[in-house]
């Protein structure tokens, strides 16, 4: 029976409670001076990794939290370690120089980490709440040739066989696969614990490896071009009508009848 060596990739995103604003040139969302925190779906994946350890059915050797991004991404790595990850790895990305990473670039970075660190389970958030691509996990599974279970609502493990209940349109789907495996988390998987103050302090002593993109030697060239970013059209308010005839006239005007 093999023990689990888990990789949990996390992303630092604009906090869910902040209303994003489009910048003046309509090319991106304004990030300067905005509150950031860990992607909520990634909190679910950290929590699941820690719970796999606490369940004690299959021993967990090591939980590695990984993040690629600006220097401040280290804050979310500390949070991840406060929640229970053993180590952190940060790849510094100079956004001004190389631009934002794209899902394929991230998946290639993760493949490198999986190979270097000999991981056999990757638990990712199903998507980040800033780009909403929901592609990285699937691409990683494709690159590695591993089994994948997306949108997990329940993860059960027995030896090296994992049974995952997935949320699909109009119901659930249950899949079963052997390690190694890629799992992406959905909202109802678990209830992430709060990273408490004492745990954050303790997490400062946990090891964190810092690397640069060049050291990783992975091609993360941008293949996509953002043409335009726009705010959604403002919602139009409702209207009151005087009587039934008024309503019928209005419906006809709108072409509803």
């Amino acid at each position: 029976m093999s023990s689990l060596r888990i990789l949990v990739p996390i992303k630092r995103v604009i906090d869910y409670a902040v209303r994003p604003r489009v910048n003046k040139t309509n090319t991106a969302v304004e990030t300067a001076g905005v509150k950031h925190s860990m992607n909520p779906f990634d909190e679910l994946s950290i929590e699941e990794a820690v719970r796999l350890r606490e369940r004690k059915s299959t021993p967990v050797e090591d939980i590695l939290a990984f993040s690629a991004g600006p220097a401040k991404s280290q804050d979310v790595l500390r949070t991840a370690m406060a929640m229970g990850a053993d180590r952190g790895m940060h790849v510094l990305v100079d956004v001004d120089k190389t631009g934002d990473l794209e899902p394929l670039g991230v998946a290639k970075l993760l493949r490198k980490v999986v190979e270097d660190e000999k991981r056999n389970l990757v638990i990712l958030g199903k998507q980040s709440i800033d780009d909403d691509s929901a592609q990285t996990g699937q691409m990683l599974a494709g690159l590695l040739g591993w089994s994948q279970a997306t949108q997990a609502a329940k993860v059960e493990i027995e030896g090296d066989v994992i049974t995952v209940t997935k949320e699909v349109d109009g119901g659930v789907e249950t899949v079963k696969a052997k390690l190694p495996m890629v799992i992406t988390t959905d909202l109802r998987l678990n209830e992430p614990r709060y990273a408490s103050l004492p745990n954050i302090m303790k997490a400062k002593k946990k090891p964190m490896v810092k690397k640069t993109l060049e050291e990783m030697g992975v091609d993360v060239k941008q293949r996509l071009k953002t043409v335009k970013v726009e705010e959604p059209a403002p919602r139009k308010g409702g209207q009151k009508v005087e009587d039934v005839d008024g309503m019928i006239a209005k419906l006809k005007e709108l072409g509803a009848i």
């Binding site: 909202l187 209830e191 709060y194």
Partner: peptide
């Protein structure tokens, strides 16, 4: 308070993604 934070975030995400 921890439960309050969790629920607030869960509901916000649920509204956005489900």
């Amino acid at each position: 308070i921890e439960a309050l934070y969790y629920l607030k975030r869960y509901r916000a995400l649920r509204q956005r993604y489900d």
